[in-house]
Amino acid sequence: MNWDDALIIYDKIVDACNGFERKGKKMIYTSSNGYMFTLLNKDAEIGIRLPKEKAAKFMEDYDTGPYYSHGAKMKDYVLVPESLWGELGLMVAYFEQSFAYVDSLPSK
Rank of each mutant, 00 (worst) to 15 (best):
Y67R: 04
D11N: 15
V14A: 05
N2V: 06
Y29V: 07
K108T: 05
E21S: 14
K12D: 11
G47A: 01
K52G: 06
D63W: 07
I46G: 00
F95D: 01
E21P: 01
M1V: 14
I13E: 02
L84K: 03
Y94G: 00
M74T: 08
Y68N: 12
Y77P: 07
S83D: 11
D11C: 15
N33Y: 05
L50E: 09
E82D: 15
Q97V: 01
P81H: 01
V102C: 12
W3M: 02
G19Q: 01
F20W: 02
V102G: 05
G19K: 05
N18F: 08
Y29C: 13
M1F: 14
D43L: 10
G19H: 04
I28T: 04
K26C: 05
G19L: 07
S107F: 10
G19V: 03
K73I: 09
F99E: 12
S69G: 11
P66N: 10
G89D: 15
K23D: 14
G34C: 06
L50D: 11
E96K: 00
D103S: 09
C17P: 02
M74W: 12
M27F: 15
A44I: 08
T64F: 04
Y10G: 02
S32V: 03
R49Q: 14
G86E: 09
D43R: 11
L90I: 06
I13V: 15
Y67A: 05
N2D: 15
D43G: 08
K108Q: 10
Y62G: 02
P106F: 02
T64P: 09
M36W: 13
K42N: 12
Y62S: 03
P66A: 04
Y67E: 02
L40E: 04
D5H: 09
K25R: 14
W3Q: 13
K12I: 04
Y94T: 00
A6H: 07
E87C: 11
S69I: 03
K52I: 12
L88A: 06
A93G: 15
Y62A: 04
C17K: 01
E96Y: 01
L90E: 11
L88S: 05
S83P: 02
A72R: 10
G86T: 03
C17S: 05
F99C: 09
K42L: 11
G47F: 02
M91F: 03
H70P: 02
D4E: 13
E82N: 12
I46T: 03
L90Y: 12
T64Y: 04
N33E: 09
D11T: 14
L50W: 11
G24S: 08
K25T: 09
S69H: 02
D76W: 05
Y94A: 00
R49G: 06
L40N: 06
A93D: 14
L40H: 02
Y35I: 03
T38I: 03
S107K: 15
A44M: 04
A56R: 08
Y101P: 00
M1W: 11
V92M: 05
D61M: 06
S107I: 13
N41Q: 01
Y101V: 03
K54Y: 08
Y10A: 01
E87Q: 14
E96Q: 07
D4R: 08
I28R: 13
Y94F: 15
P106C: 06
N33S: 03
Y77A: 08
D15A: 14
S83I: 13
S32M: 08
T30D: 10
L90M: 08
S32A: 15
K23A: 10
